[in-house]
Design a protein around this nucleic acid. Structure first.
Length: 424
RNA sequence: GGAGAGAUGUCCGAGUGGUUUAAGGAGCACGCCUGGAAAGUGUGUAUACUCCAAAAGGGUAUCGAGGGUUCGAAUCCCUCUCUCUCCGCCA
């Protein structure tokens, strides 16, 4: 959520920037925001003045009563009573203006960073760092991972359908151990990089979903538990970032670096088709997430650091990857700048998105009231960032496919201490 | 699930309708004192919105949340949320 003060001061720049996000109503909505905010301000001024008078009068009533000047007190009482109606009206007007303003602000996506390329579709994303190494050469008869799963019995989608539904895989034997190994590996690497491990709840309340930007706009993407009004988390970003909702940090507490493993639940409504076979798109998958809270002046350095952390993970797993800078049209609603990591899957002959690293600047912190106190004791919104480090299912797909040999599937050296087997 | 108690500032804690402008204590910050420290002592120490060109300084709201009664509510009433204790159930 953008701040009204920022919108007021940078109207033209914001309208222009939001074009990148294809938010066509930008000019109109920005004008509405300013108009409603003006109304809110004048109304509050009127109400405050009225309340101030009532408060003073009430105090006088108390004094008069004490001194026994009851007749005078009664007159004053009647006066204050009379102004009540007007107070009520102004209060209602103020509440309405506040609600209208909130709704307008919630409808505006984050301002993209200057470096974000124009473009609408994933094809228009910019290749930030291409893969310069070799691509795996597979032997004759190499299989896609869903065939490999059958051959080596590492996961079973049909069993998942039986007990839950489509998109909920059951991992088995070495397949299950591989999941566990990857989670432990990713968490250990994050710890080495200075991230504190968090194991949060896997369901969150509405306030949390709102703060990180999943609600109200992306309601249909999350599983909702109606009986208790809770949501299954689509990513650990939601509970972990929300640990700091309604918090004022001291400047010296930066940077806050957190990581956590959670399963992720996504309804993925409407995304069915040729590219969703096997582990490519699931309703439940495992992921280790890194989250950072940063001083605004340092958030882009932090973003680059996170980028290198994720790159390091893929290097250690010996997977070919490239980094994309997302264009305005492919970025999420709440992000200011996003880099995606894609791993090349040789058997499918396509790139698979395995990580997304984003700077949200103040978009989330404004919604969640996450601030810090600067040297002048002023409270200022912090910047929030997060990235997948990494999402498991597609990493598993790529590992199975790229490392297959006629004798089995080779486990990368870095992972073997965790799997305690070298081949599947 | 049943019964009871409770929620006050950074923390502890007083406060049952009007100098509460939230007592007192602790913590923290700055100063005095000291050779230095402790002790002592003084001052300060919430958030949001808003007025003012800015600063200084005002106004309004906030005692778990929302509503109500009243000229006036931390205090009385209603609804909700959460926490604790005991019992029941249970990994």
């Amino acid at each position: 959520m953008l701040q009204v003060s920022v919108i007021r001061e940078n109207r033209e720049k914001i309208v222009e920037g939001l074009k990148k996000k294809h938010f066509d109503k930008a000019a109109l909505v920005v004008d509405q925001i300013i108009e409603v905010d003006d109304l809110r301000k004048t109304t509050q001024g009127q109400l405050d003045a009225l309340l101030s008078e009532s408060n003073k009068a009430s105090k006088s009533v108390g004094e008069m009563m004490k001194q026994g000047r009851t007749a005078e007190a009664e007159v004053l009482k009647a006066q204050v009573s009379a102004s009540k109606e007007q107070e009520k009206e102004l209060k209602a007007k103020l509440d309405q203006a506040g609600a209208d303003l909130e709704n307008l602000l919630l409808s505006v996506p984050n301002m993209p960073h200057d470096s974000v390329p124009y473009g609408k579709t994933p094809e228009e994303n910019e290749v930030y760092r291409d893969w310069t190494g070799d691509f795996p050469k597979l032997y004759e008869g190499a299989l896609p991972h869903w065939e490999l799963a059958r051959k080596y019995d590492v996961f079973d989608l049909e069993l998942g359908v039986k007990i839950t539904g489509a998109g909920f895989p059951v991992y088995k034997g070495k397949g299950a151990k591989l999941q566990r190994a990857l989670i432990a590996f990713f968490l250990d690497e994050a710890e080495k990089a200075g991230y504190t491990e968090i194991l949060p709840p896997h369901v969150v309340n509405e306030a949390s979903g709102r703060a990180t930007g999943q609600l109200p706009d992306k309601e249909g993407q999350m599983y909702h538990i109606g009986i208790d009004d809770l949501y299954l988390i689509p990513t650990a970003e939601v509970p972990i970032t929300n640990l700091y909702r309604d918090t004022i940090l001291e400047e010296k507490e930066f940077p806050v670096k957190l990581c956590g493993y959670t399963p992720c639940f996504r309804r993925e409504a409407g995304s069915y088709g040729a590219h969703v076979r096997g582990l490519n798109r699931l309703h439940q998958f495992d992921k280790v997430e890194i989250v950072r809270l940063e001083h605004p002046a340092k958030s882009y350095d932090a973003l680059m650091e996170m980028l290198e952390h994720v790159a390091g993970l893929l290097d250690k797993l010996e997977l070919p990857y490239r980094i994309l800078r997302l264009c305005g049209g492919d970025m999420s609603f709440s992000s200011a700048l996003t880099f995606d990591f894609e791993v090349y899957s040789a058997a499918q002959e396509r790139w698979l998105e395995v990580s997304s690293v984003s700077n949200f600047e103040t978009f989330q912190s404004n919604r969640m009231k996450l601030r810090y106190r600067d040297e002048n004791k002023k409270t200022i919104l912090a910047h929030t960032l997060n990235g997948s480090a990494l999402a498991l299912a597609r990493i598993v797909a790529a590992l199975l496919e790229n490392n297959q040999t006629p004798d089995g599937i080779q486990i990368p050296a870095a992972l073997q201490p965790y799997t305690r087997f070298a081949m599947i």
